[in-house]
Design a protein around this nucleic acid. Sequence first.
DNA 1: AAGATTGTACAGAATAAACTGTACAAAAAA
DNA 2: TTTTTTGTACAGTTTATTCTGTACAATCTT
Lengths: 160, 160
Amino acid sequence: MLENNVEQVRNKIVTEFAKTIEMFDLTPLEARLFAYLYLSEKALTLDEMSDALGKSKTSMSNSIRSLYDMNLVTLVWKKGVRKDLYQSNSQLFKLFMTTYINKWIDATNHQKDALTELEHNLSEYRNKPGKNDEWDKLTKQLDDIMEFHKKLDSFFREMK
Amino acid sequence: MLENNVEQVRNKIVTEFAKTIEMFDLTPLEARLFAYLYLSEKALTLDEMSDALGKSKTSMSNSIRSLYDMNLVTLVWKKGVRKDLYQSNSQLFKLFMTTYINKWIDATNHQKDALTELEHNLSEYRNKPGKNDEWDKLTKQLDDIMEFHKKLDSFFREMK
DNA sequence: AAGATTGTACAGAATAAACTGTACAAAAAA
DNA sequence: TTTTTTGTACAGTTTATTCTGTACAATCTT
């Protein structure tokens, strides 16, 4: 009874910690998995995770892959162990922040490219006759939106 | 045919702009509504929005309410007009950033409170006999997580 | 006052996301 | 080689989210 308290409290911590992690655009399961891994400290196999979180192995495979791609988790090699072992990276703040900021920068640039494309379309049409005031207005607005994206980009770049 | 091009290009801009806005945790519809409103410049009624986006009036009511709560949109009064008129706020960057940053700060603090609560639980149990090394370990980990939240908090506070 | 109009609550329908179980390819063990 | 084990692809199911239509209270018009 008393010894269960350790597990109970640990679970509560996992739950709360996971809520925070979700804010970095991780799914609930990914977040919980990371939180659990973080408190476990040692490297775990897919089966152990599946067991611990009560979710299917497929789910674990997908979730751990996501975490791995985000660089939140590391694949660990251990002599004599055949299964893949994954371990959470430490340095929470730096880890999540750089991942998050990079995500913003990538997305922002992608959007900037798309808008640049539209700017070209727009300037082609503009040279044709008719409706020129409407085109002017639209050009001005697109500039404003572009400016917004530029600010976003440099804002997140300065964070790094 | 040519005159439709204005609408076509405008729609493409709305679509791309909306994608960016979604990154600030708005739903696709909320994002598209804001983008449309932004390009419209003038204030619009629920019916006009419903018409323009091809979505139900209920959806518009809900979405505009969200935008309003986030301070992204303003209720405008116009003489002789009975319906509610909503207009997008300008100053895109400042607008979205402050909303976003405040959201992070609020969430982070909420999480900090929850963790503090857990810290208290934990220290109560610790004084009882048995399993003290496990409690120590857990305490240490909770401290780390708390530290992470403090860093998050001050990080976003410095942005304002 | 009655009649009409406007915004939203609510319940259900449509759509999207998360999750599972089976099946199988790749790699290790026998 | 054959047999076993491990991770993942895929299709389908479950769960959650988004969206719609009806109904109605509040407000305006007559």
